[in-house]
Each structure stands twice: as C-alpha cells, then as structure tokens.
C-alpha cells in the first residue's frame, strides 16, 4: 500500500474509534498522522516479533493525547491487533486516551502529561551512548508542549551531552487547547530557540510523507548535536471544519451535518460508521 493510502486509512481508524468511544483527541491526532506513517513504515528500526530488542530504535509519543493515531499505526504495523482499536476508551480495555507502556505492546513510555517525553528520551539516548549502541530515540512533541520548562531543561541536557542519537519531531500545528499558540504563549522564533540551545534544526511540511522521510533519513544532521525536525502541520488535517479551529482540540463531532461532512471527506462509508457505533 502506498504510504499516502496508509495515512488515509489511519485517519479513518482514528475517526471511527474516537466516535465509537465518544472521546479522545481527533484533531491533535490528525495533525501527526503523516509523521507517524513515515516513522513506522520507513524510519524506525523495530521488529514486531522482538519488541524489546535492546538495539531497537525507541519512539516516545510525548504528546500522549494523540494516542488514537499511535494505536492505529501500531495496529497497521501488526504490533497490536486491529480489533483492539474497537476497545479504545471502552470499559475494561487497555487503550486509553493516553498510552500506557506496561499494558500496550509497542508503547515505550506512558505519556499524557506534557513535557515528560524529552527527558525520558534523553535518558534512553544517554544509555545508548554509554552502552555503545547505535539505536536512535525519537520523541514526538506538540508545540504547546514546548511551553513546559522541563522541555528546555531536557533540551539543554541533550545538547550538553551531544546526544546526536536523539531526535525531536515537533508537530507544529500552531494551535493549543484554547487558542493560537502565538496568542497564548509564543514560541517564536522557534527554530532559533532550538538552535540557540545547541540543536541541529530542520523544517518540513509535516503532511508530506516523502519529505518527512528524506529529512529523517539524513540523520544525524550534524555529528555532535541532537536533532530537531520542526514539522509544520495543520491541526485537524483531513476534516475541513476541524482544520485550524482550536475548539476541536478534544471535541468529537456529533451533529448530523458534521458527521456527514467528515465521513465524506475521510472516505468512510455510512455503513461502516454505523457498525462501528454499535
């Protein structure tokens, strides 16, 4: 399957599982679909039959609220069973609105509270250096998350220790829960911030899978610096009325009109949607 097709499929899954659950975060998940497809289908060195191999690449979904995107991609890669997605946020299930590492195969770190993933990832990267392993550690962060001070403690640490095996990808959709990032607590000049902290910085269109892959295939960007790829994205990408509207951070469509438009734009047939709701 073409990677773009996979991305389309992942969006369908996210939408269906979130509507069934009546919860989760659709728009923040949609903004990082292409990033996850690039990572899980081209970049990450992981073996679904040997998930704890000590030489594996590590991936941390620091923006844990995009869990539905992660679960969908894990299912697509055969790491978790596809039918598990139907249990998202359901009674007795293991797939919560934020991912937990102790119960879900392929989830490296439990996340949900923002500003934790980068320190955790820096520790993994440091262990890799000490143990002479050549795995990489990828941390996907949201832009709002970069308002947490702990992110910058970790950024300084990673640069100081020259962790070139550490890669941050920022899902820079320019929105956070209550509004525009620039209106609430500006991150700009965002690239310069990372540079001044001693990181190698690249930027990419975060919905262009082949460009994301190109950028991640050229790692490390420099020999002795950690790497950050700023992915410019659209929050809610894929459903026109959600795109770039802060309100949709954790809303699930429920009006007839909204659902009608979403199904049409995502290419989900009505029958599949109704089945999923049962």
């Amino acid at each position: 399957m073409e990677l773009e097709e996979i991305a389309k499929n992942i969006r369908k899954k996210i939408f269906l599982m979130s509507c069934r659950a009546g919860g989760g975060h659709i728009a923040p998940s949609f903004s990082c679909v292409e990033i996850l497809v690039a990572l899980y289908f081209k970049i990450l060195n992981i073996d679904k039959n040997d998930l704890h191999n000590e030489n594996r690449d590590r991936f941390i979904l620091s923006k844990g609220h995009a869990s539905s995107a992660l679960y969908s991609i894990l299912a697509k890669r055969g790491i978790i069973e596809e039918k598990l997605l139907d249990t998202f946020c359901q009674r007795g299930g293991i797939l919560g609105a934020h991912p937990e590492s102790h119960s879900i195969p392929g989830v490296e770190v439990s996340t949900g509270s923002l500003g934790h993933g980068l320190s955790f990832g820096a520790g993994m990267a440091l262990a890799g250096k000490i143990n002479n392993k050549d795995y990489r550690v990828f941390v996907l962060q949201s832009d709002g998350e970069c308002q947490e001070g702990s992110v910058w403690e970790a950024a300084a640490f990673a640069a100081h220790h020259k962790l070139n095996n550490l890669v941050v990808i920022v899902d820079y959709n320019k929105l956070q829960s209550l509004g525009r990032t620039n209106d609430i607590l500006s991150l700009e000049p965002f690239c310069d911030r990372w540079k001044s902290f001693g990181w190698s910085v690249k930027e990419v269109d975060g919905h262009d899978i082949s460009r994301i892959i190109e950028n991640l295939e050229s790692l490390p960007y420099t020999n002795n610096k950690p790497n950050v790829l700023i992915a410019h994205t659209v929050k809610g990408k894929g459903i026109s009325f959600m795109e770039n509207i802060p309100l949709w951070h954790y809303r699930i469509p429920n009006s007839k009109e909204e659902i009608e438009i979403a199904l049409k734009e995502l290419g989900i047939d009505r029958k599949e949607f109704e089945e999923g709701r049962k």
């Binding site: 490296e108 770190v109 934790h116 980068l118 955790f120 990832g121 820096a122 520790g123 262990a127 970790a154």
Partner: peptide, 8 residues
C-alpha cells in the same frame, strides 16, 4: 526524567 529513561 533522564533517570527513568536510563532505567528503561
């Protein structure tokens, strides 16, 4: 956080 990453 770094310690937790190392421990993992």
């Amino acid at each position: 956080g770094v310690a937790a990453g190392l421990a993992s």
